[in-house]
Write a protein that binds this DNA or RNA. Structure first.
Lengths: 234, 234
DNA sequence: AATAGCTGTAACAATTGGTTAACATTTGAG
DNA sequence: CTCAAATGTTAACCAATTGTTACAGCTATT
């Protein structure tokens, strides 16, 4: 049920794990991928920051204790990076002392998880943190002022009229509506809707955009030439 | 310093505490008010829900175990209430067992804090949770006193009015606004906006500057003859 | 296996925005 | 004050990006 929630959405489900211990990376990767997340890994803070900038993950799991650059320092650098302002940072702390937990949060982290890691709690926490990132979410619907997206039925309501959309078109619209006004680049659309591994031609996105406009009306999706597409309320 | 962060923003600083034990309410209220939050209290889930609807708090701290209506049930009702959609819900759990923590999160909570309550951790957690909503609301923006550049929406706000700029103009303005008052030479502009490999003519920069002035007004970009261009706040 | 509908592609059309050229204007050094 | 150098202005051109259409291959369903 949780799994389905995640699998059916086209929103960013990329997680970056940063830890110097391979055992922990493997454990976390296994558990998160089982839940439908796209997992990338890095072995130290420096590599973590670089990968984060490149892949724009929804969430970063950061070990507190690492060689080269520790978690606190990495977190500071992540928080300075404007393009990562929506990224959630969660620390893995081995100790449960107050001061290290407070230190994590003051460094700009959103949360921390204490070792030993209990997978169910980890999954539930991550799910709860990501749940918040979608603006107005009521049950299984996503709505802006003019459009209601029903995730269960693959149906979109525009001005009270229900429209059925095929999967790809639905996912594309879902992505755009998840952040009205935000311009999604073709790359972002590509990796969210089609995934990082599948490769499709250049015109494919345009064609799907066109089909959406055909069904919804031209007024909702704006082209920002040279940049990408955006959903606009007006 | 943290206090300043909170005090300096004009956002909702209201917190609602819901617990049946007066001792805990007092302890929490004292600590939170010391940090500059506006604290309201309720003694059970029913009263909590009513007060929440009335005062629209930014965050609700909810005890898991309460007479009449327990935390899980209250949380469910809060999540159903459309006006409380953006409100953050945090549970206070006395036990640290996995299942109750997972239950809280699955009930729609954003986080939980285990008793015994350690005020410093509590404060840091609440601060972190609220900080994130500020971060997301501010978006990926770059602002001077008179202009807000929203990188996500690819829009520039001048005196409250949103203006769309084509890619190159946007990038040029972004560069100038990134360091108000600094004079950028043509060479610097060239390599920042166009890259070191592409070669364009001498007048290209002028033309883009002109288009920016046309759209923003003449007062923002000053020519330093023989040197370059600068963005001025006045 | 037949069907219907979804998905991606290729080929071409339309549009936008970046660049340039040509000329006008301003600036500041002498 | 003069004049050369630097910058401003305009419109037209062209290339890159996006839109459009028809169609072929694929997938799920019966």
């Amino acid at each position: 049920m949780f799994q389905n929630d995640i699998m059916s959405t086209a929103i960013n489900k990329t997680i970056l794990l940063v830890d110097d211990e391979q055992d922990i990376l493997d454990l976390l990767k296994y558990n998160l991928e089982k839940e439908g997340y796209l997992v990338h890994t890095a072995n130290d803070g420096q590599e973590g920051l670089e990968k984060a900038k490149a892949i724009q993950p929804a969430l970063i799991l950061l070990d507190l204790m690492m060689p080269k650059m520790d978690g606190i320092e990495s977190c500071g650098l992540i928080r300075k990076e404007a393009s990562l302002n929506e990224t959630i940072v969660v620390f893995l702390t081995s100790r449960s002392e107050d001061y290290s937990q407070v230190a994590c949060l003051e460094a700009g982290a959103d949360d921390f998880i204490t070792k030993p890691i209990r997978p169910r709690v980890l999954i539930a926490k991550i799910s709860a943190l990501l749940r918040r990132t979608i603006r107005i979410e009521n049950g299984n619907t996503l709505q802006s002022s003019s459009i209601v997206i029903n995730r269960d039925k693959f149906i979109v309501e525009v001005k009270g009229k229900g429209i059925f959309l095929p999967k790809k078109e639905f996912e594309l619209l879902e992505l755009l509506v998840s952040r009205p006004g935000k311009v999604f680049t073709r790359d972002q659309i590509m990796s969210s809707v089609w995934g990082d591994d599948t490769v499709v031609g250049e015109r494919t996105i345009d064609v799907h955009i066109r089909k959406l406009r055909e069904k919804l009306g031209d007024e909702y999706i704006r082209t920002m030439k040279g940049v990408g597409y955006t959903f606009s309320e007006n």
